[in-house]
């Protein structure tokens, strides 16, 4: 789980072009959207693509993203449970 969290942090920084943010800057329970990392709606869509591409998870209802992408903690939990690759 710890490795997955680290992996997610590094992927998010890369995929979402978070130029000024380092892995160490992201805490497991930081809010990814809103005041936390300040991600926006396009980032959320990009995370949906990432789930599909890297973990083989297809979100049926994009609204699910809201709870899944709350923090690194929630994302890692969801991926660990549902990944097919």
């Amino acid at each position: 789980m710890e490795a997955l969290k680290q992996e997610l942090k590094s992927k998010i920084i890369e995929v979402l072009n978070l130029e000024d943010i380092a892995i160490a800057d992201i805490n497991d329970d930081d809010a990814l959207f809103g005041d936390g990392l300040g991600l926006d709606s396009i980032d959320a869509l990009e995370l949906i693509v990432m789930l599909d591409k890297d973990y083989g998870i297809k979100l049926v209802d994009p609204k699910e993203g809201k709870t899944i992408f709350k923090s690194i903690e929630t994302m890692a939990g969801y991926i660990a449970e549902n990944r097919v690759k």
Partner: peptide
């Protein structure tokens, strides 16, 4: 095939 919304926009 993974179209990126962040590129498409």
């Amino acid at each position: 095939y993974y179209p990126s919304p962040a590129v498409f926009v």
